[in-house]
Amino acid sequence: MRPAIPAAVTHALIPHAARPPGVSTQRRFAREIARLAVGSLYTELCLYPKPGLVSLVDSGSHDDMNAATFMRSLFSLRHYFKDICLAGLNDAPFARLKQLGIAAEKSMLKATRGINTHRGAIFSLGLLCAAAGRARAQGTPMAPAALRATMLIRWGEELAMHASAPSAPAAANSNGLRVAARYAASGAREEGALGLPSVFEIGVPALQASRARGATMTLARIDALFALMAHISDSNVYHRAGPQGAQTVRQHAQRFIDAGGTARADWLGQALASHQLFVKRRLSPGGAADLLAASCLVQAIAALDAERR
């Protein structure tokens, strides 16, 4: 059954009479979307402090990866984002998107020597790139709500099936699915089936709210990260530390938000204190980091669309 599409989302789809873009125009657009996707992941990597997460400053709670590992991963994904955007432009079925994602994961693991740096991001940012391509082909807006509607209308039913019935043995053995089975924690597949609600209902609004009060983009991203940490059931955290670790992450994040986030003069000290505790306890909210990158991509796509209209 196709998942229900929020009413506010469907109203955002306003078709524009336009001829489908030519091949060269499609490729230029896909390259631009890929550049935004890679840039969003790089933006997330550069952000600091991010409790327990890898940055250019330190490796957080990880001893198996660092910023250089992430850079190799980013480089390996640049063609994937372009290809999946082109797939969306050409109205590809979900099976084709999935095929591209599996190939991208293999490239990532080869580049990182088997370390999972961006599995969740391959799924969520890939879907957004495909949705941008589909919206471009249809001449519809790429504002956040319209982008989400495009994704759900075109691939919603298949995404729901993908979330409930993994087909590959390797996927069935993934950390995320094992965690979901044990703790009922949501992951990238469940997010995708619902049209990335954590991105469109938490991450993007948090970015917009911080910017509206005058925060810089960097501070807005910190606020959005903590908002995501406070609200999602992060399978990465459950895998490493179980329900108690997940509760610690949510409590620290909610306390940061309740204190005013980056609007508080002492926000940096609070964020650093959380980072130090998370490192000590080996907590790493990688799912929130992926969703932050996806939220940044949604904003970047909307900005690009606004410039061209």
Rank of each mutant, 00 (worst) to 15 (best):
S274T: 12
Q138D: 10
Y238S: 02
G22N: 14
A68Q: 13
L56Y: 14
G269F: 11
T140F: 11
L89H: 07
S295H: 08
D305K: 03
A265T: 09
G133C: 10
A181N: 04
E191C: 03
F226E: 06
A253G: 07
A145W: 04
V38M: 07
N175P: 00
R264K: 13
A227D: 06
A230M: 05
A137M: 15
G176P: 04
G120A: 10
M217D: 15
A145D: 08
H16M: 11
P141T: 00
G156R: 10
A230W: 04
E307G: 12
L128A: 08
G203D: 03
A246T: 03
Q244W: 00
V57W: 09
R240T: 00
P49A: 10
P93W: 08
R78W: 06
I153Q: 15
R189A: 11
V204M: 12
G156F: 12
R213W: 06
G269N: 15
Y238F: 14
L228N: 05
L207E: 00
I84A: 13
N173V: 00
P166Q: 05
V279E: 15
V9Y: 07
Q276Y: 13
I33K: 07
S235I: 08
Q26C: 10
K110Y: 06
R35W: 05
A300G: 12
S40M: 03
L97M: 03
L196W: 11
G101F: 11
V249F: 13
T262N: 09
S59D: 10
A180D: 01
P20C: 10
C296D: 03
G187S: 08
W267C: 05
G203T: 04
S124K: 05
G52M: 09
F81H: 04
H62T: 00
A30S: 09
G187I: 01
R35I: 01
R282M: 08
G203S: 03
H118V: 00
A163Y: 07
T117N: 04
P144L: 06
K82G: 05
A160N: 02
R182A: 04
R221A: 11
S174C: 11
G176H: 09
V279M: 15
R182Q: 13
G245K: 02
T117A: 14
R189S: 09
D305T: 00
R308L: 14
D64I: 03
A303N: 03
